[in-house]
Simulated scan of single mutants.
Amino acid sequence: MENVKIGTSDLQVAPINLGGNVFGWTLDEKQSFDILDAFVAGGFNFIDTADTYAWWVNGTGGQSETIIGNWLKNRGNRDRVVIATKVGSETKEHSFDISKKHILKSVDESLQRLQTDHIDLYYTHYDDNKTPVEETLSAYDEVIKAGKVRYIAASNVSPARLEESFGLAEKEGLPRYMALQPHYNLVERGGYETDYAPLAEKYGLTVFPYWALAAGFLTGKYRSEADLGKSVRGGGVKKYLNENGLAVLDALDNVAAKHQSTPATVSLAWLLAQSHIGAPIVSATSKQQLETIFAAPTLKLDSEDLEALDKASKS
């Protein structure tokens, strides 16, 4: 398993990014520690969270960062993992906000919860589409120079604002985004491939897709409306229970059977076979789910597999 270099940074990560959105939501602290321990024991080192996870539980968020911070302190392994978190997301306390004031306040709060002196990769989680790009980048410049953040990345930022960011970074000597975190998977292809893949190519961005398994749909767990009650996330996949979604599951079943694998593993292997994809973001609530995830980097899909999945997912 080869590590992935993030953009032009000196960060090296294994090709699976553990999503921390379940910490403090469907997993308590002890269960989260078990998943984090098993993830690192499996040879992986990249953990993704956000300052607002899991705001949908208590309206404020911070649980995920707090649990990860307690784990880092308890295990004494901060230097062996790469931590990514985010700023600018929405809670009941504030709407999208990437102003300098908000970034400078939020980074200190994240550092406190994570119990660390630096964040390896700091994302613009959501763009408020009103703060001048130069203001946001200069805030990042300040926290990078202070040693609080090593590198920055972007998630839900429009192509136009991304282009503006790169132009200003070049012109003014401000920090540039090293990575992109888009919504991308076998049933959500158009937005990324049309609008963002050209930017990843142009600016050498490493791509870390979120919802890599389409909220669990691509595991094959949900095949009818009767299946939606299987988990708290079931309602989020109802939109995929159509002819196109079921065609993707059928193709996944066939490729998985050929390789004696699972639909989830094949879905992640497909992502890893795409240009610029560094490490799909996947959450897990059991060690069995982790094993399925761990198998993806070693599953090499052949041209026949890729063609079948491509055809089904573009139908």
Rank of each mutant, 00 (worst) to 15 (best):
E2F: 06
V4W: 02
K5W: 02
G7K: 04
T8S: 15
Q12K: 11
P15E: 01
I16T: 07
G19V: 03
N21Y: 11
V22M: 11
E29W: 05
F33S: 02
F33Y: 15
F33M: 03
I35P: 01
I35V: 14
D37I: 08
D37S: 05
G43M: 05
F46N: 03
T49Q: 11
A50T: 07
A50C: 07
D51M: 00
A54G: 04
N58S: 05
T66L: 08
G69R: 07
L72W: 09
K73W: 05
V81D: 04
K92P: 00
E93N: 13
H94W: 02
D97K: 01
I98M: 11
K100F: 00
H102G: 06
V107D: 03
D108E: 15
D117Q: 15
D120R: 02
Y122V: 02
Y123N: 05
Y123A: 03
H125F: 05
Y126D: 01
T136E: 09
G147D: 08
A153W: 01
S155I: 01
N156E: 13
V157N: 10
S158T: 15
L162V: 03
F166H: 14
F166P: 00
G167F: 13
G167L: 13
L174C: 11
P175Y: 02
M178F: 00
Q181I: 04
P182H: 06
N185V: 08
V187L: 09
R189P: 09
G190W: 08
A200L: 12
Y203F: 15
G204R: 11
V207A: 09
F208Q: 12
Y210K: 09
Y210N: 14
L213V: 13
L213Q: 12
A214F: 09
A214W: 11
F217I: 12
L218T: 10
L218H: 11
T219D: 08
T219M: 08
T219L: 06
K221D: 05
Y222F: 15
G229T: 13
G234M: 06
G235W: 13
V237E: 06
N244Y: 09
G245S: 13
D250F: 00
D250R: 14
D250Q: 14
D253P: 06
N254A: 15
A257D: 15
H259M: 08
H259K: 11
S261M: 01
P263V: 07
P263F: 10
P263R: 06
A269Q: 03
A269E: 03
W270C: 12
W270A: 14
L271R: 04
I277L: 04
I277H: 04
G278S: 01
P280H: 02
S286C: 10
Q289R: 10
Q289K: 07
E291D: 12
T292K: 11
F294L: 07
T298Y: 00
K300E: 12
L309C: 06
A312F: 10
S315H: 12
